[in-house]
């Protein structure tokens, strides 16, 4: 009967095979990104003009691009930037989203203002808003993170606010108030601990969206500067050769799809596991 919580977590999480596979794929991608200098067969920036646009083969498993750079190595290094930007966006939007969501949900007087801003931001299509912000701020990795964080923070605010509205009415919060527990502690312990799971699920989705959005921005030239290899910039610079060398865009594209899809599936798994209603049904 007694099981360690961690073991139980994994057993529930990976009841579905697909979730396990997605999780493993993610682990591999992240490990490759972390260990890029040891894993990548070539330097990502090493130009070899004689070997430009070579198809996948023995020397270059995934072929080479228009400057003769090894695509596999660039994908591995690109993962650092793509996932790094995604992760930074998750961190920033989670932090601010949770903060404003808690405040808006708990203090009704702040709610109107916060939610109006959220509604305004969410009314605009994600990618358009991001392009606009990068155009204003200037193209750099930092600004891409900033722009995407502004785009995704409202989602987190919504989720946190909705949960806070429910939890603040629960008797254990009332009990804390009756005991004279400070508002700060009520927010940071009683409410935050209980909104943590929906926020965690949201985090995986935002990670996926951010990876996709970064690629989109880079592709449109509104993202990070082309010198920095990201999956988006690889497709952007490779697109004009796509008709003669499909691998230039196919493999970075596959990397994007694989990463985003895995994140979504893991997010779904996490949600199913944390949703007590679905858990009962199994």
């Amino acid at each position: 009967m007694e099981q360690s919580p961690l073991l139980l977590f994994f057993r529930r999480m990976f009841r579905r095979k697909l979730v396990l596979i997605a999780f493993l794929v993610l682990c591999v991608i992240m490990l490759m990104a972390l260990l890029a200098p040891w894993v990548a067969p070539y330097e990502p920036t090493a130009i070899k003009v004689i070997r430009r646009l070579k198809p996948p083969g023995e020397l270059n498993w995934l072929g080479t691009d228009e400057f003769g750079r090894d695509i596999l190595s660039r994908i591995i290094y690109g993962a650092r930037a793509s996932l790094g930007i995604g992760f930074a966006v998750v961190l920033v939007s989670m932090t601010f989203g949770t903060l404003f969501g808690l405040l808006a949900g708990y203090f009704r007087s702040l709610d109107g203002l916060v939610m109006r801003v959220v509604d305004a931001l969410m009314a605009l299509p994600d990618i358009l808003l991001a392009i606009f912000l990068v155009a204003v701020l200037g193209a750099s990795a930092f600004n891409v993170v900033l722009a995407l964080s502004i785009v995704y923070t409202p989602r987190v605010i919504r989720v946190v606010r909705a949960s806070t509205l429910v939890i603040r009415e629960l008797p254990f919060v009332e009990a804390a108030r009756a005991l004279g527990v400070s508002t700060r502690r009520i927010l940071s312990v009683h409410i935050l601990l209980n909104v943590a799971s929906p926020v965690l699920v949201q985090a995986t989705f935002i990670f996926a969206y951010a990876v996709l959005a970064e690629a989109g921005l880079s592709f449109l030239g509104a993202g990070v500067p082309p010198e920095l290899p990201t999956w988006g910039t690889m497709i952007a610079s490779g697109q004009q050769y796509a008709d003669q060398a499909f691998w230039v865009v196919l493999f970075p594209g596959l990397a994007i799809v694989l990463a985003a899809l895995s994140l979504q599936v893991v997010g779904d798994g996490l949600r199913d596991m944390l949703d007590p209603k679905l858990r009962k049904a199994l």
């Binding site: 629960l170 008797p171 254990f172 009332e174 009990a175 804390a176 312990v189 009683h190 601990l193 209980n194 943590a196």
Partner: peptide, 12 residues
């Protein structure tokens, strides 16, 4: 409180 489930924070 009435509800023995909702009156204790499940995470503490």
């Amino acid at each position: 409180f009435q509800d023995p489930y909702a009156s204790l924070n499940p995470r503490l």
